[in-house]
Design a protein around this nucleic acid. Structure first.
Lengths: 126, 126
DNA sequence: TTCAATGCAAAGCTTTTGCATAAAG
DNA sequence: CTTTATGCAAAAGCTTTGCATTGAA
């Protein structure tokens, strides 16, 4: 089981303070003045434990608070990065469709829908 | 417009030869003996042109042939990496649900469902 | 005391860039 | 002749690892 260290707490608090935003390892390193090694190791642990969600992009990974740890899909806005938790019975419908029609067992945890949220959609129109 | 070079052709042929598989930059570099710089530059160009699809993971990117270039969602198997093109009217239903119920404009091109394909699912059971 | 976590520095990887040369249009 | 592509080597990131030390249980 993980030890309750000052660093681990600081990092988790940082994410919990803005559950709607994603943060990079670099950002944590600079904001909290914790060593690179510790930040990367802790981010990996927290992700493995399900407390954070990791998004891997072309220029490295970003992480986001996932305190709920629920088994559900997510919607992610390509512009502002906000992550919407999809607690919706329609998810089951999607699962069923892929299973019966495409012989594909969807992984809820890992599936992320990408698109534009309401706010950013309006921004585009302007 | 891009020049028709020997290297560009070789790379595109390599992908076209196995449209159902993903390949890494390193693999291309070694298999075709083309310089790193050229491979990365060409992969970027081909992805921008829509001829390849890029998947970014924790340890680098993988690319897959995408000749069809269609506007549809994809299913990707987490185990074998196979990419299934989702040409299915259910996609419209999903779009509509997210738009009306979640005010979210899904991006078909970028949305990838992750899970296990039929073959790999059977493998797990053994 | 025991075992995990930290920090520092060094190393590993993937990917990018500068620049001279070669090839395509 | 003009413009893009190539190759090499160097550099830039992001992330990981080794090792001695610190701190939690």
């Amino acid at each position: 089981m993980p030890y309750k260290t000052k660093q681990r707490h600081a990092i988790l608090d940082y994410f919990a303070a803005s559950p709607e935003n994603t943060h990079t390892a670099r950002e944590i390193i600079e904001a909290l003045s914790i060593s690179e090694a510790t930040v990367f190791r802790t981010l990996t642990h927290l992700t493995d434990e399900g407390l954070l969600k990791r998004f891997t992009g072309p220029h490295g990974s970003t992480y986001q608070y996932s305190g709920c740890g629920g088994h559900h899909m997510h919607l992610k806005c390509k512009t502002c990065g906000v992550l919407v938790h999809l607690e919706c019975s329609f998810a089951e419908e999607i699962m069923r469709h892929f299973a019966t029609e495409h012989h594909f067992a969807l992984d809820k945890e890992d599936t992320v829908f990408y698109g534009l949220c309401e706010n950013c959609r309006e921004g585009v129109r302007k």
